[in-house]
Simulated assay, not measured.
Amino acid sequence: MSQRPTRILVDLDAIGHNLAAVRGRVGVPVMGIVKANAYGHGLVPVALHLQAQGIDQLGVAFLEEGIALRQAGVRVPILVLGGLFGPQLTGFLEHDLEITVSSIAKLRQVEAAAEALGRKAVVHLKVDTGMERIGVHSYSCRPFIEAAVASPWCTIKGVYSHLACADDPASPMTALQVERFAEACAHFERLGAPMPLRHLANSGGVLHFPETWLDLVRPGIALYGVQPDPASARPLALRPALSLVSQVVYFKVVRAGSPVSYGATWAPRRDTRVVTVPVGYGDGWPRALSSRGEVLVGGRRRPIAGRVCMDQFMVDIGQDSAFNEDEVVLVGRQGGEAIGVEAVAEAAGTIPYEILTGLNERIPRIYLGGGPTA
Rank of each mutant, 00 (worst) to 15 (best):
R273Q: 12
V295K: 01
A193F: 11
F251L: 14
A233N: 12
R7A: 09
G293Y: 13
S232G: 09
A231H: 10
A121P: 07
T129H: 00
I363G: 06
K252Q: 14
E179D: 14
N360V: 13
L214G: 02
L58A: 04
A267E: 14
I134A: 01
V341R: 08
V329Q: 11
G370K: 10
P45F: 07
L289C: 09
F313P: 04
S246H: 09
R25S: 10
V295E: 03
L63H: 05
E294P: 01
V122D: 13
R234I: 01
S258E: 14
A193N: 12
L223F: 12
A348K: 03
R7V: 07
W266H: 04
Q88R: 06
R23C: 00
D271F: 08
C154A: 11
V329S: 08
M131G: 01
A14V: 01
F181W: 03
V341E: 06
T265W: 10
P235Y: 15
L81Q: 05
L107F: 06
P372E: 15
G257E: 10
K252E: 12
Q227L: 15
E94F: 02
Y281W: 15
F181C: 06
R7Q: 13
L236I: 10
I304K: 04
V248D: 11
E342A: 13
A36S: 12
D168I: 15
Q3G: 15
L81N: 07
R362P: 02
F85Q: 14
S261Y: 03
P372D: 15
P210Y: 03
L84D: 03
Q312L: 05
L9V: 08
A116N: 06
S290D: 07
W153V: 01
A105M: 12
A112L: 11
S291I: 10
Y39L: 04
F209R: 00
G371T: 15
L289G: 04
E183I: 01
P268L: 11
A164P: 05
G16C: 02
H17F: 10
R255E: 14
E132H: 12
H199P: 04
D13F: 00
V26E: 03
K252R: 14
I339P: 03
P29R: 06
V110L: 10
I221M: 11
D168C: 09
V30S: 08
L200R: 06
G135T: 05
A256S: 12
A347V: 02
V217S: 02
